[in-house]
Amino acid sequence: MPPRNDPTARQQRLGSELRKLRERAGLTASAAGALLGADQARISNIEAGRVGISAARLRTLAGHYDCTDQVLIDALAAMAGGRGRFWWEEYRGVLPNGLLDLAELEHHAVKMRTGQTATLPGLFQTVDHSRALFQQAMPPLPPHEVEHRVSHRIKRQVVLHRDHLLDYTAVIHEAALRMQFGGRNATRAQLEHILALSERDNVTVLVLPFEAGVFPAPGQTIFYATGPVPQLDTVQIDEAHGPVFLDSAGKLETYRSILDRMEALALKPEKSRDFIRDIAQSL
């Protein structure tokens, strides 16, 4: 099978973790290939996410790398294999790959946290709010792409409603709550939607009011996806060109600390609901 031209972020992450294991074992790609009955090019392609690897062969490699962390090996084995036919694949070639990677990250997360200053979390957005946002994109998006992005964003929200509940904590700054995307009625409906979600057992909404003062990383959108093992945690931040995914130990620690600080400064859940309710009633 020829190498993939467009490996997903998840496939690239699997390859990156295998490279880390190989390097810790002090093996070259050529030596690792020999142990697996393959050449250096195949190992390099696996580590770049361009070529897949079966769970069985991954476990064989981990054994050659003297990895004894069985929980990590099991988590990596679960990432192995083909891309699969998940719902976001219908958008491949239609939307930027980064948006599909984000949906895949959310799908496989075991816990999620976000900190938002100027926009509302995509997992909370209504159709009207989402459409108003995409209609203001620069450069302007054609109407059909706006609708594709809206439908993709709404379908992502299934992760909050599946049978196996996923804990999601969102810190939202007052500025984001007061922006009237789509007009007063759409904004009121959007805030009421957030209030309804905040009543779910797996959803925690915390408001960071103006009066809280300064806080770390103002203006930045932060999404932290907890993986099945700490080594597979991922941070996603928004850039002008699309989602950026970070997974170095230093970056993970930095963004965990930022979110911890934001949560400490925010109102408690019940007061946050009252705060959102007051804004909605004032519209």
Rank of each mutant, 00 (worst) to 15 (best):
Q180G: 00
N5T: 12
G242F: 03
D274F: 00
I53S: 00
H144P: 11
E253H: 10
A29F: 01
Q40L: 01
Q190R: 03
D6S: 03
R113Y: 13
R57K: 15
R83Y: 05
T117I: 08
G37R: 11
A56E: 14
L166E: 11
P96M: 01
Q190H: 12
D233K: 06
P230Y: 10
A212P: 01
Q236P: 00
L208D: 09
E145H: 04
H107Y: 10
L27S: 08
A170Q: 07
F215C: 01
F275L: 04
G93H: 03
A38V: 14
A55W: 12
E211P: 02
R13A: 13
F215V: 02
D274V: 08
K20L: 12
A189Y: 03
E104P: 00
A62I: 07
L208V: 03
F245D: 07
G63F: 03
L35Y: 13
G182A: 09
R113N: 07
R200Q: 15
G227Q: 13
L120N: 08
T8D: 01
R149V: 11
S44I: 04
R85T: 08
V94G: 03
S257F: 08
E104W: 14
R200C: 10
R131E: 14
A77Q: 15
K268M: 06
R50P: 01
L72N: 15
P96G: 02
A196L: 02
E23Q: 15
